[in-house]
Design a protein around this nucleic acid. Structure first.
Lengths: 172, 172
DNA sequence: AAATAACTACCTACTGGTCGATAATTTTGC
DNA sequence: GCAAAATTATCGACCAGTAGGTAGTTATTT
């Protein structure tokens, strides 16, 4: 793993625990074994790092999902696959969804970071609409916003109350 | 309004836009016309201020709701009343739910603040369970976590995408 | 020679927090 | 009733620590 990748990984962990202000160049640098000034070589500003982090997070999130109609063709319910990805983030990573956290504080984010968070939710809603469409839902757009809202909310509350059974109950 | 009340009000606005780290004693002080050193007279530490803020927020939130069975007796659906309170926060205040934001970053909060955020959600779940029970829901506890999850999630996404129609679609 | 990736040293701004001092007000003891 | 004592609410000055960011340098690789 390159230093740049290690910096992004370290930043992701910090942000998913406490938001955009929960990481500093100094902390990231010391975690990957370089000096804080060197972080600026890879990311000119903190906003650049945050934006690239959210962008890559979105891409790998969507990539992990696959295509709704392909999932359906393989006998899987794409909504279950989607739910499972959230569950893994909560149970395995024991962390919030990166963009769920950044979205909550989006009013105070640098423009380029906020833009990437918007991209995450727009792409998720598009994916979920397609998924609900293949499931024969009468109103896919509505089902899409309801699905992602429920998952993000349940995740946040389960984290807060430190009890994953709330997530299970909400998604059951 | 006393200085202490003004400080809490100023802090609430800041936190609901960007989280716990989005306010400083200096900012609050200058907004209410005192010096930062004087803020420590009212709140020994930042954690004390944050905890008292979340506590009062929870109390006034619950007070604004009223009792589920009384609402029902007056011909109102308590779940609609609950939804309306979230809608008002989003549409009128144009801000996140204080504890929705703090909950997302609860891993990085001081203990006494996190405790108050937990109290918010525990009390909300109790209220919602009672409300769904009066509505004759077969599984009030499940309906409760689903209601608050959907509302918190829809609120966050509507804020992020800067489009309240997502909230309306999700709650419709 | 040029690009890459790091470094040391430094800057200004801001953070939460502490200190002792200072008025104004309120409470208490005689 | 009144002086002494205590409480309330503020202040200026300061502290150590941390923030993001910059300038110029060095070593390694291409």
């Amino acid at each position: 793993m390159s230093k740049k990748e290690a910096l992004l990984k370290a930043a992701e962990n910090k942000v998913r625990l406490g938001g955009y202000s929960n990481f500093s160049f100094r902390e990231l640098a010391s975690e990957v074994g370089i000096k804080s000034a060197s972080v600026h070589y890879h990311f000119p500003t903190k906003a650049d790092l945050g934006a690239e982090l959210a962008h890559q997070y979105t891409d790998s999130f969507l990539a992990a999902l696959g295509e709704p109609n392909e999932l359906k063709a393989n006998g899987k319910n794409p909504i279950d696959v989607y739910t499972q990805l959230f569950r893994r983030a909560l149970v395995t990573d024991k962390k919030m969804c990166l963009c769920g956290l950044l979205g909550a504080e989006s009013d105070s984010l640098p423009d380029k970071v906020r833009l990437e968070v918007k991209r995450f939710f727009n792409q998720n809603l598009t994916w979920l609409s397609a998924a609900h469409l293949t499931n024969g839902e009468p109103n896919p757009a509505q089902a899409a916003i309801q699905t992602v809202s429920l998952l993000e909310g349940a995740m946040m509350i389960s984290k807060t109350l430190d009890d994953n059974s709330y997530f299970e109950l909400a998604t059951q």
